[in-house]
Each structure stands twice: as C-alpha cells, then as structure tokens.
Design a protein around this nucleic acid. Structure first.
Lengths: 115, 115
DNA sequence: CGCTCTTATCGTCGTTCTACGATGAAACGA
DNA sequence: TCGTTTCATCGTAGAACGACGATAAGAGCG
C-alpha cells in the first residue's frame, strides 16, 4: 500500500536581501548567463522551478508525481538545477526538501535584463 | 591579400513597439522559456547576442573575427539563435546582416521576470 | 564568363544530454 | 533489527550538441 503525504516539510526559510554586487557584463557574466540559461533550457526544469515557486512550502520528491517522468530522471534534473545554483536541497528526515535559491533567480533576472 | 571592412551595412531598423499579449505562465510559456534559455545556454551565443546589441549597426560575419571560432561554427550558433527567434538575418549583397529581434528579447525578459 | 568574397551546409568525430530501470544508502517505524 | 520509504547514483542506449574542415551556393567585379 502506498502511503502518501505527511503534512509537507516546509523548510527553506530563505531570508536573503543582500544586494548583488557582481557585474552584469564581461566574459565572466557571459559565462554565468550561459550556465543559468542552460539549466533552464529544458521544459521539465522550467516546470520544476515553477513548481517550487508556486508552493511556498518547498516540495520534496512530490515533484515526481507532477512531472510524468521517472524518479531517476527528475533527480537528474534537480541535480542540474542544483549545480547551476538555482535550487537548494536540504535533507529532512528520509526525504529531501528542495527549494529555489532566490539569489540565483535575481541574478538571472539581472543578467537577462542587461541584454 | 585580405580586404576588410566596407563601411558596415547598417541594416535592421527594427521599429517594434507593439505590446506582447502572450501569457507568461502555463505549459506553453514553459516550453517557450526553455527554448529561449536553451538558445542562450552557450557562452558563444551569449557573446554573439551581446555583440549584436553593442553595435547598433548590426554586424554580419565580422562576428567571426571576434569569437576565436571557425566560421562554420559561428554560422551554426547563428542558426540556433535564429531558430529560437532571437536573431534575424537579412541578406545584404554578398554578406548577411544579423541583428537582434527585440520582441524576442522582451519576451525572454517577461518570462524570466515571471519566475 | 571566370574569380573572389561571404555564408550556409555537409560529413565527421567526440562529448554531452535525456531518459529509463536497477541498485545503493540513509532515516525512520514497527 | 528488519522492512519501508525516499532519494541518489550507476549503467546504458539513443539523440542532440559543439567543433572543425571541406565544399557548395549566391553576389558582385573584372
């Protein structure tokens, strides 16, 4: 029998309000923009980011239920997002709580806005 | 002997001011964001976009001179950007004048801003 | 018509991506 | 301690990417 949904972890407080001092141009910024863009360059990953944003409570692997993809595939996409710095994962008992890294998102907006 | 630089075409007037009515959420928007992001997901392509923005006069294949990459490789990157709708190419005599498609760029900003 | 200049396209090769099932590993609960 | 649940990782196979040189195709000049 499949047991589902203990209430939802509700981790990832994410305070954050420090300003971002990094430049939005130059070779370094180009590489950064490319890296962040590449991470968003797959529909499933965009979906994951949107999902994490929609639920203020950050979802663990309930993401799998939403994305008609295998659990291992979702895990890989999460890894890509994590390596790009867009997403953070915190261990919460047996599961892992994922959430958006707001700083990275702001950074992406700044970089895209500089175009 | 290598002849260089007839004055520069100066094509692509790009008027554009119509508002964008498309939604910034939903599965369609997700796919669109993924497509645009993927196109920007390579440093060389970010460089190209920046280069085209910097020169109000839109550069043709003088892009090759700037990007230590082979001409065929640059042409491929341009093709990717064109297929994503970020860039337009107009034939100008023997050469091709590339320029940014401002609507696509605004669209990208709107989509990223919706995150 | 030939020649040159500029781009696009082709063919290739090695790398990376995407997806999956199968297998591990850590954290509970009974 | 033993199962269960949850997630990551491994191995694999097919598709797509990124780079290059070589080649074709179009415009203009002589």
């Amino acid at each position: 029998m499949k047991r589902r949904k203990k209430p939802e972890p509700a981790c990832c407080p994410a305070p954050d309000d420090s300003p971002d001092l990094r430049p939005t141009e130059g070779p370094q910024a180009d590489k950064e923009l490319a890296k962040l863009s590449k991470a968003l360059g797959h529909p499933a990953r965009v979906q994951i980011v949107r999902l994490l944003l929609r639920r203020n409570s950050c979802v663990c692997g309930g993401i799998v239920d939403e994305l008609s993809l295998a659990q291992s595939t979702v895990s890989q996409h999460l890894k890509v997002l994590k390596q790009a710095g867009l997403v953070r994962g915190e261990i919460d008992g047996p599961r892992v709580c994922y959430c958006i890294e707001p700083r990275a998102l702001r950074r992406l907006r700044a970089l895209v806005g500089s175009l």
